[in-house]
Write a protein that binds this DNA or RNA. Structure first.
Ligand SMILES: [Mn+2]
Ligand SMILES: [Mn+2]
Ligand SMILES: [Zn+2]
Ligand SMILES: [Zn+2]
Lengths: 127, 127
DNA sequence: AATATTAATAGTAATCATTATTGTTATTGT
DNA sequence: ACAATAACAATAATGATTACTATTAATATT
């Protein structure tokens, strides 16, 4: 993987936010410094960065979001505002060693949480 | 929701399989008895059946799968062959009462498992 | 039973996120 | 410098799903 300023900028943007951005959001941001960048370039580099394990991709409904935090962690999605939050769950407390389910060999356990976020709960109380 | 033989046939097909079919798979099946059915009709009815809670929808990568088993249960996806299996996990053993994460109100907990299924593990051993 | 109402249909066009293609540019090794 | 080619910008293609439109058929009303 040879250097490009486009990829450097994309990585910087993802590492400096905690909004779990979509490709489109990244595109809007990077255009501020590289106005003529192509959306295809953003997608290509996001895929390369995921392959290189420099970022994570998380699926959210019909879109893919990206995450600069490569430490394994879970996510909570607010059904009201759509924001995605990191969740620090001591995984061992909730998910004991699942190596096998029946005769299936389990390699990947993902916990997906949904609900109403703190901000939206707060706003709800003001009505 | 008024009666239609198309919807009846679609529901029957989904209830009589355990493959967690996609809209396209259902379309191929229902065409055997209703050859001129439209793919749009399949999608429309699948959505109606989900809304009426007669079937479940589960997201799998870029496609939506449907499930005639409306009892809450988890799924295991084989990364080798792509099959989706039901998983009987006594949920309370793995997911204690999560009502709140920090100040977020959790309403929905989903456990997603991936790995190599029993069949594929077996085939692997024959090499 | 005939007629009216309108939900549901078949056929097809549109949408939207993502990927592929193509000709050009820029990075890297010699 | 120069050659090799990865990465680029621009744009076309893809694929799952949804929307549109004229027609058909299920149910209600006479
Ligand atoms: Mn995260
Ligand atoms: Mn199932
Ligand atoms: Zn919220
Ligand atoms: Zn398998």
């Amino acid at each position: 993987m040879r250097y490009s300023k486009q990829r450097e900028e994309i990585l910087k943007i993802i590492r400096n936010t905690n909004v779990h951005p979509t490709a489109d959001w990244v595109y809007e941001q990077v255009r501020k410094t590289i106005p003529n960048i192509s959306l295809g370039t953003v997608y290509r580099n996001l895929n390369q960065l995921v392959a290189a394990e420099l970022i994570l991709s998380i699926k959210d409904n019909t879109v893919v979001r990206y995450d600069g935090n490569v430490n394994p962690h879970n996510h909570f999605k607010c059904l009201r505002c759509g924001n995605v939050y990191d969740v620090e769950i001591p995984e061992n407390d909730f998910i004991p060693q699942i190596n096998r389910i029946g005769a299936h060999r389990v390699t990947n356990v993902r916990l997906e949480l949904e609900g109403i976020c703190a901000d939206c709960v707060q706003k709800e109380k003001l009505n």
